[in-house]
Simulated assay, not measured.
Amino acid sequence: MGFLEKIGLKKKETLEKGVEKSREGILNKLGKAFVGKDRVDDQTLDELEEILITSDVGVTTTLEIIQRIEKRVAKDKFVTQAELQTMLREEIVALLKDNDADKPAEFDADFQTKPHVVLVVGVNGVGKTTTIGKLANLYKQAGKKVLLGAADTFRAAAVDQLIIWSERADVPIVQQGQNADPASVAFDTVSSAKARGSDIALIDTAGRLHNKKALMEELTKIKRVMGKVVDGAPHEVILVLDASTGQNAMQQAKAFTEAVDITGLALTKLDGTAKGGIVIGISNELNVPVKYIGLGERMEDLQIFERESFVNALFGE
């Protein structure tokens, strides 16, 4: 049994409540599109296409989903609404699975390399530092030795905020204050994690996107110095995005993937938006798996992303 189950978190209920606004919007649109219809026709598929696009799934991903469904509908001209909704769920789950064949591990799973180094990136205001703090808490509660690194030295508030989270989660932190060299902080963090016997090091980075060249150079330098301390570091690069910004999050994601190799996504603030469909579009278009979703303010409201559970919650059981 995984850590989240052991401590009795009601993941399903939290997930369903977290995507409630998105689910209500989608089901309301589906209900209006299907009212009075017994069978699926071309008009129904056109309306489904519009529903997905207006639910922030995105044009590219929506067209891919519709094309998959059209192939299945063509084999049976007497598809019902219920069958269509089942197809829709199945195709979205299959599309998300294409991005990541491996099921994400729980927080108490063993790492192949110690310390396991995670670099966290994202623009300011998306919940990046908060996500790091929640991850630190969840790993700590799962019995891991955690170390934080405050390499977002561009803003004093970022360092101060991460210090607060280190205190909340009761995990140590490496920081050199504002205007310190981010690569130096990253190097010290990984070195300290290695010396302490830490299981995982979570390292915050600056959230500037106005100059992608400078961002890329900074992140490249950070990765290079970490790799000198621990082979293969960073082992993960997590991009944090604010789901409530919809297609703006997509643009941020594309910019960051141009600057650094992203291995996973964390979508925050899903509980406060009706734009939950963006999770599907971003994962598909970037071919990067969603690893975490933020569903509320509490420490435990950050969940590991499970595709089938998410799709069922988004479209209703």
Rank of each mutant, 00 (worst) to 15 (best):
K71I: 09
K228W: 03
G25R: 10
F315G: 08
V229I: 15
Q175D: 13
T189I: 04
L239P: 05
A151C: 11
L135G: 05
I200H: 02
E300I: 07
D76V: 06
L241A: 07
Q141A: 11
L9T: 15
N211E: 11
G227E: 14
D42L: 11
G177F: 00
Q141P: 02
F315Y: 14
E64S: 13
L270S: 08
E64N: 15
D56R: 09
D231E: 15
H235E: 04
T14A: 15
K114M: 03
M87R: 11
T131M: 00
M226T: 02
A193I: 06
D170M: 00
A151E: 04
N179R: 11
K194Y: 00
P172H: 02
A156V: 11
A180Y: 01
I53G: 07
V19L: 12
D110W: 03
G296W: 12
K223Y: 02
I26H: 06
Q178C: 03
Q85H: 13
S244E: 11
K12F: 01
G246V: 07
A74M: 09
N99P: 03
E70K: 15
E258V: 09
P115R: 10
L95N: 09
T61N: 04
A101Q: 14
L84E: 14
K212T: 13
I53E: 05
L267H: 07
S192F: 02
L138N: 07
L138G: 00
T61L: 08
V118K: 05
G232R: 01
V120K: 03
R68H: 07
A243V: 08
G125T: 05
P289T: 12
P289V: 11
Q303K: 15
E317R: 14
K97T: 09
G125Q: 08
A33F: 01
E258A: 13
Q247I: 09
L219Y: 07
I262P: 12
D188Y: 00
R23N: 10
I26F: 14
A94F: 01
E236Y: 10
L270Q: 15
Q141G: 15
V117W: 05
L209V: 10
F111I: 06
V126N: 02
V35R: 14
